[in-house]
């Protein structure tokens, strides 16, 4: 009886004990998904830039958008420059935007149509990641995690509610 108990204990100990938790693979946090344009594209000279944005601030307005961008609370993809833009006239394109781990309350596509790039009137939100019609969906991005499968639909002629 005693030997049996000891044996059972030893077996449990030796067979089921493997060192425990191990390191997970290193992954840079990111947002990943597809942008689908379901309307005709406007003339190229009216879409000077097209960016994906992910904002930790919501609601965004003309008072906080620029401070949010410069402080890193609003991430711009593919990059924060007038030279970078998403592809024009491509109806379905994928994105992989590296972002800091945070909660993003407002994700969408921003189009610049005016020349005054420091004026909010030069910009329009042309599509958002939706929870419901017109309702932004919140996405939490954690360290070592890629949030994938995000679907953003753009309709240049039926815009979502504008922040400014």
């Amino acid at each position: 009886m005693k030997s049996l108990l000891l044996s059972v204990l030893l077996i449990v100990l030796l067979t089921s004990c493997d060192g425990g938790l191990t390191l997970p693979p290193l992954i840079e946090p990111a947002l990943e998904g597809t942008i689908t344009v379901q309307s005709p594209w406007p003339p190229q000279d009216s879409v000077k830039n097209l960016w994906l944005f992910a904002s930790q601030i919501f609601p965004v307005d003309s008072a906080n958008i620029f401070s949010g961008i410069f402080s890193g609370s609003i991430i711009i993809y593919p990059g924060l420059s007038l030279d970078s833009t998403l592809a024009y006239n491509v109806n379905v394109q994928t994105f992989h935007a590296k972002v800091p781990p945070a909660t993003y309350y407002y994700i969408g596509i921003l189009a610049r149509h005016g020349d005054q790039f420091l004026e909010t009137s030069s910009y329009r939100v042309v599509g958002i990641l939706e929870e419901g019609p017109g309702q932004p969906r919140t996405v939490i991005v954690r360290n070592d995690e890629v949030v994938s499968g995000l679907q953003i639909t753009v309709d240049f002629y039926n815009l979502p509610p504008q922040p400014f």
Binding site: P101, T103, N143, D144, E145
Partner: peptide
């Protein structure tokens, strides 16, 4: 875990 958030 999701909302705190607690990574892993």
């Amino acid at each position: 875990i999701a909302l705190a958030p607690i990574v892993h």
